[in-house]
Amino acid sequence: MTTKVTIAAVGDILMWRRQIAAARLGKSDRFSFDGMFRPVAPYLRAADLTIGNLETTLSGREAQYERRNRKTGWPMFNCPDELASALKRAGFDILTTANNHCMDRGEKGLVRTLRVLDRHNLAHTGTFRTQEASRKWLIKQVKGIKFGILAYTYGTNRIPLPKGKPWLVNRIRKPKILRDLKALRPLVDVIIVALHFGQEFKRFPTASQRSLVRTLFAHGADIILGAHPHVLQPMGFRQVSGAPGLKKKFVIYSLGNFISDRMLNRLQSESGAILNLTIEKNARGHVSLAGASYVPTWVHKRVQGGKLRFRVLPIRRYLRNPDAAISKEDRRTMRRVWHNTTRHLKGKAR
């Protein structure tokens, strides 16, 4: 008898100022993010294991959640805790937290973010509260198949880690990743590595991205999920002879933005994909990567009740059955995004 496990993965979960304002309930200090994810929640819940990249902190209530770094001018993110409960209800099981914004409110914000995720039963990896925690693997067993999940980031937007605490954030350091792969490989059937890397708004991976992926596959990584460019980058299967782990491996260099406001007036920053991977284990205990497909998505904005609203739409479903909030212009945009996404990613789109 063959066991099948489905994995869903999405890219950056960003919360800009206008998105947080859209989630505020009236003039109160309460928020609801559920409506942003309601259209795609059935796709996320349908998977056996759903993973996303949390690219904000949950650092506590503030008058101004989005700030600017005085030295660099780059945004610094924080979001109300209600986001965590909305993500859990939407179907997320695991959130990777190693990214360039994980230190946006310093060590205290990083630690508090993890406490909030724990409170909502959302597993996480990539950042850690203690050195002891950084030495523990995130392993999920689903239908008898063991998955190990690792996450690393290229940097923290020039925000330094406290002295003596390099373990707070997993950085992309090849020797460390290779040590982690070697230690984790005997404990699991499948290793998933989330990499926050690449160049923003570039639709193709750099030579260094490709080189790192080849190295990690050769040392036992099975699935690599890229994020950070804020646009989609190509995906595909790889056959790596003699490598530990699965015979057939898979990479997507960037999953794009799952939810975001438009960035630099680029439509592609509002489009992403829900990646679906099928893992099989046969009667002899052999585990393999059986298939991949994806659901192209688009962040739809509309004014409702005099207020701007955001929601992530599965494009094909809403092209076939648009609701009253979808305008003719929205349909044109969705067709354009569908064309751009499917032409770029190729493969099986749903």
Rank of each mutant, 00 (worst) to 15 (best):
K163L: 12
T6D: 07
L255D: 08
H120W: 15
G198C: 13
D81Q: 13
D104L: 01
G306R: 13
Q209V: 05
G285Y: 12
K348Q: 14
F258D: 04
V190G: 04
Y65T: 04
L138G: 05
L161E: 09
A47W: 08
K301E: 15
G285F: 10
A194Q: 13
K307W: 11
L264T: 10
L168D: 01
E107H: 07
M334Y: 11
A86I: 12
R336H: 07
L49Q: 12
Y154M: 05
V5K: 05
G106P: 07
G35Y: 12
L150E: 03
S32C: 13
F128N: 05
G164H: 09
R214S: 15
I94Q: 00
R17I: 00
H344C: 04
A227E: 06
R332V: 02
T127W: 06
V312Q: 02
P205F: 02
F92E: 08
W16K: 04
I159R: 09
L49V: 09
T56Y: 01
W16V: 00
A283S: 14
L216N: 11
W16G: 05
P75N: 05
L110T: 06
L49I: 05
L232H: 07
K136A: 12
F197L: 13
A151V: 01
E200T: 10
G106T: 12
R343L: 08
G272D: 05
S85Q: 15
A22Y: 06
K249F: 04
G126I: 02
A283F: 11
L138W: 10
K4R: 15
H230I: 03
I315F: 13
G285L: 09
A41L: 08
Q19A: 02
E280H: 14
G60C: 01
R119K: 15
D189R: 07
T206Q: 12
A23S: 14
R309D: 00
T278C: 05
L289H: 07
K307M: 06
M1S: 14
F128G: 02
I177N: 02
S271H: 03
L83M: 11
K88W: 14
R179Q: 13
R335Q: 15
E329T: 14
P234L: 09
R210I: 13
E66V: 14
V169S: 03
F92P: 05
A84T: 13
W298N: 11
D330R: 08
D29K: 13
Y43N: 02
V142K: 15
D12H: 02
G106L: 09
I145A: 04
P296D: 09
R350W: 08
E82H: 09
T113W: 08
K248R: 15
I159G: 01
P296N: 10
G11S: 05
L168H: 10
T56G: 01
V190K: 02
R320I: 03
F128Y: 15
A84C: 09
H230P: 03
Q141I: 01
A22N: 06
I159T: 11
H300P: 01
D12P: 00
F77D: 00
S269L: 05
A290R: 15
L58K: 08
Q268G: 09
S28E: 14
T6S: 14
V142T: 12
K27V: 04
V169E: 03
N121Q: 14
L255R: 00
A9R: 07
K182M: 02
G52M: 03
P244E: 12
T127C: 13
H101S: 00
S28W: 12
H286L: 10
T127I: 04
M334S: 13
L195F: 10
